[in-house]
Structures are given as C-alpha cells and as structure tokens.
C-alpha cells in the first residue's frame, strides 16, 4: 500500500514537460491521472525512477470538436467524455463506452489518453479507438507525429511511443454519414476490467449501406483486437441480422481468449459473438435514427 520512492517533476508548461522527458529518456515516465500507475506502484509492480506530473498542463484538459475530428487532450479525464455533447455527436461508440470505464471516482481522475497509452488489453478505450479509427498525437521536443491507433497499440502494455515522447491528443474522425456505435462490456462488477467487450461502429451512406465499420475486442487477446475481416464483410453491404451474425462469427473466431477464473475460452468467444451481434444492431438502430 506504500509506493516506492521516485523523483518528482512538475512542469508548468508542455515545453518544460517535453524537455524533462527528453532529458530523462527511458528513466522518465508521465504521471497523468495515475489511476493505473499508482496502484501498480503501491503493489510494487512498478517502480519508475522519475515521474513527470502533467497535471499542471491544464491547457491539455480539453474535449473539443475540431474541423475533421473530435480532439481529446492529454489531460481530459474519463469523466469529461461521459455525457459530453461533442462525444455523443461525433463518436457514439465512445459515448457508449464512457460510463463503463472503471468507476465514477476513478473516472474523475484517470485520463483517456493515459489509459490509451497504458495499452492494457483489458482496458476499454483502445477497443473503442480501434473501432472508430482514432489517431494518437505524440509530441516530443523534436516535434509531433500522428500515429494511427493500430500502429500505436503494439502489444500487452506496450505502445509505440519513442523515448521522450508523450501523448498530447487523441483524434477521432467525424463519421461521413449517419453513424452509430456501441460498447458492450461484460464485467463482473462496477470498476472491474472487462471479461470480454466489443466496440462496434457503423457509418451509413445515404443509400443505407455501410460506408465504414469498426469492430474491436477487449480482453480476448494479448492486445485490444481490431477485427478487420469482419469490418470488411460489412462495408458496402446493406445491414441485416444475417450479415451481423456472419461478422460476429468472424469476430468470435478471430479472438484468442485465455481460460481463467472469468471463464473458459469458449465462453468468452460465445460472449464476443453475442455482443458483436448486439453491438452492431445497436449501432445500426442508432445510425438509422432509432433508439440507441
């Protein structure tokens, strides 16, 4: 219950933070909400030598609708995207997931970007981001790059940030047509990680066919899993329960869950199958302007 000692840095500006991260290199770690990092430190599963606390960089605490996308700053808390009008308008998948991330108090402190950078395969946000085709803005003293989420999530607790880089923004593209989305999570109780979860996203063309689709899975592989094959099956098609069932079967086959106290692998596959179908149906209903 007591974390190990570390050097603490509290930069007052982004430039100062980036310089410090550059200077510390591998020994530096960003402290944002700390809702994953601090518990790991308390259990002595993590012992960073230096923490660069970005909580004073309040300029990064934004959720806004930019021209082409929804922009979420590095210091936006999970709670900031719950019941947020920009989020609801631009990313129904994200709006659906937001209330189910951690618990209400953790949401008040933990950040969306920090959770994405954490790359916990049981974490919710990366499935959402994979389904909606988000990008991560990584910034360092030498500039900025925009990393597609699929390239950002490398593996189990591993992202593609370089030394000295930090996530400064998450960008979620605006749907081109009428869109809907859902995040269906099986958790054992509030505050739990997912046993299995499915993020779905559908963008409909004016003729009612699917112009873009997203399906990504939580906690059933070594990282959050985008099911491209299932997405491709939907694109260009007229949605139907049969089509969704086929996509769901593909998603269930694509995942690679472990058997554990949360259930055997085949159970988790069955849940993925059922939730993919349900999630797509919800996304469709929403895209068609019906009940979400």
């Amino acid at each position: 219950m007591y974390p190990p000692a570390f050097e603490y840095w509290s930069p007052k500006s982004l430039d100062e933070a980036l310089s410090k991260l550059q200077e510390l290199g591998h020994d530096g770690r960003v402290l944002a909400g700390g809702q994953s990092l601090i518990p790991m430190m308390k259990l002595r599963l993590a012992a960073p030598a230096n923490l660069v606390d970005i909580n004073n960089l309040t300029d990064l605490a934004y959720v806004r609708a930019d021209n082409g996308h929804l922009a979420i700053g590095a210091l936006a808390r999970h709670a900031d995207v719950v019941d947020n009008d920009h989020v609801k308008t631009i990313s129904p998948t994200m709006a659906s997931a937001a209330p189910w991330v951690a618990d209400p108090l953790v949401r008040n402190r933990g950040t969306v970007a920090g959770s994405i950078a954490h790359c916990d395969p049981e974490g919710d946000w990366n499935s959402v981001m994979l389904a909606v085709g988000a990008s991560v803005v990584a910034t360092s003293t030498s500039g900025q790059r925009v990393i597609p989420i699929g390239d950002f999530v490398v593996d189990f607790f591993t992202n593609s940030l370089a030394e000295g880089e930090m996530v400064t923004e998450i960008q979620i593209p605006r749907p081109t047509g009428s869109a809907g989305g859902a995040y269906l999570k099986l958790e054992r109780k509030i505050g739990d990680y997912a046993t299995a979860a499915v993020a779905t996203f559908l963008d409909l063309a004016t003729d009612g066919t699917v112009s873009n689709a997203g399906i990504a899975l939580t906690a059933v592989a070594s990282k959050n899993l985008k099911v491209t094959e299932a997405e491709q099956m939907l694109i260009g098609q007229t949605p139907s329960p049969e089509l969704f069932a086929e996509a769901a079967a593909v998603a269930a086959a694509a995942c690679d869950p472990e058997s554990d106290v949360r259930g055997p692998a085949e159970y988790k596959r069955a849940v993925i199958n059922a939730y993919t179908k349900r999630g797509l149906a919800k996304a469709l209903a929403q895209a068609q302007g019906g009940a979400s």
Binding site: P39, K42, A79, V106
Partner: peptide, 26 residues
C-alpha cells in the same frame, strides 16, 4: 490497496477522487 473501495474519498477542487491514488505533491 487497489483503488477499489473509496474509503479514502475526498473532494479535490470539489470533485470526488480516491486520495489513496494520488500523490500529495500533485
């Protein structure tokens, strides 16, 4: 020890948080 129980809840600038999962320096 795991940010699960909320017995340590305080209001930080009016917002409830778990004070076991924040460094005092922050």
């Amino acid at each position: 020890d795991t940010t699960s129980c909320g017995a340590c809840t305080v209001l930080l600038d009016g917002t409830p948080i778990k004070s076991c999962t924040m460094f005092a320096v922050s």
